[in-house]
Design a protein around this nucleic acid. Structure first.
Lengths: 202, 202
DNA sequence: TTGACAAAAGATAGTTCTATCTTTTATAAG
DNA sequence: CTTATAAAAGATAGAACTATCTTTTGTCAA
């Protein structure tokens, strides 16, 4: 019997990501993905139940890469101080965005395409919104108060500002600068913040 | 002869915005819009050349609201110091997002549907990306240097931080708080940054 | 009251896409 | 070499949607 090509599923995901990066997630169709991989359109369904599963596949693969970072273990550890987890979450997301400039963009694209609540993050910390979950947990536990929101903001600012300093001080070599433009940098930083579910519910 | 209902075009735009807010821009169809307004589907085409024109209509109406703010006049004035224009741009966008929590989200959604460069902003300052255009113009003119990027960052931070202070100091009444969650606030602030065209070009 | 005409509704052609079902192809095992 | 079987391709049903063309409705002006 024919042996299954185990790399094919990854190739399909790769092609989907390519389309997202070039044309946005709204432009994805099974026909286009199949054509890019060089297989029949129906073949997609041997590897993914439906189109939703394909998008989930892309999302989960990117999330998995995030989880492999050692910092994420601290974030997921409920015994650690909530503020440290907040800081670590933001910082690791930011560092990740430097090493994987497309990754968070892809995640954002799929989040934008998803109606209602994003299911994808639920397995991360048992909530749809990790940073909010951490924050609310902190408030509930009496560790955080309203004033601590300022702390969170400060963390975000300082993390981004650190990169700006690196730029100034020539820490990066010419070919090594993660972001060439201000908007690139800010956007990557912005991408760390989960989707504003609250804005959607009317 | 029958008189044209001049409010109908606005009603169509309103319905489109409603759909974007609830289900995202990918969910827009002329059928759904027409049903929401309570008219025939073909009727949409009496007011808009095609679907693209409908989306443009939504986008341009939101942009027009932005331009009505007095701060925008400073941004658009080429005689003003480039740094002041940068600051004013960011600040006015932020203030606008506080008063119109859905507006920037709608803009972002339509940008998502547009492949490649967004044409919509070109009439604003003669570029696809106002903040980058301002920034690059400043560098070209010798007014800005790399180090000035830090200034821009600082401006962004301080603008957001001001809101955080407002929260702390009880400037807002209970029912008046523009954002209830951190992610809401940051996301709105992030939306002020134009789309990362640079990330898309491979 | 009637004719003119724009607005609105209705019908539909044509396209695109998802997902399933059928047929063909390739290969491992006997 | 043959057979079994999974993978791949091909075909297509069915849904949804855009955009256009035709018919009906409503209303202003003579």
């Amino acid at each position: 019997m024919k042996k299954k090509d185990l790399t094919k599923k990854q190739k399909i995901l790769d092609a989907t990501v390519e389309i997202i990066i070039r044309d946005g997630s709204a432009a994805i169709s099974t026909t286009k993905v199949a054509k890019k991989v060089g297989i029949s359109q129906s073949n997609i369904y041997l590897y993914f139940k439906d189109k939703r599963a394909l998008l989930d596949g892309v999302y989960l693969r990117e999330i998995a890469r995030l989880e492999q970072t050692p910092e994420m273990k601290i974030v997921l550890n409920p015994d650690e101080d909530i503020r440290i987890r907040c800081f670590t979450y933001l910082k690791s997301m930011y560092d990740f965005s430097l090493q994987n400039p497309h990754s968070l963009y892809v995640l954002e694209q799929i989040k934008l395409l998803s109606k209602g609540a994003p299911d994808y993050l639920s397995h991360l910390v048992g909530s749809n919104n990790p940073i909010e979950e951490l924050f609310n947990a902190g408030i509930k536990a009496g560790v955080l108060r309203k004033i601590d929101r300022r702390l969170t903001m400060t963390v975000i600012f300082s993390v981004i500002e650190k990169h700006t300093e690196n730029l100034q001080n020539g820490v990066y070599t010419e070919s090594d600068v993660p972001f060439e433009t201000v908007s690139q940098m800010i956007w990557a930083a912005l991408a760390i913040v989960p989707y504003p579910k609250d804005l959607l519910s009317k």
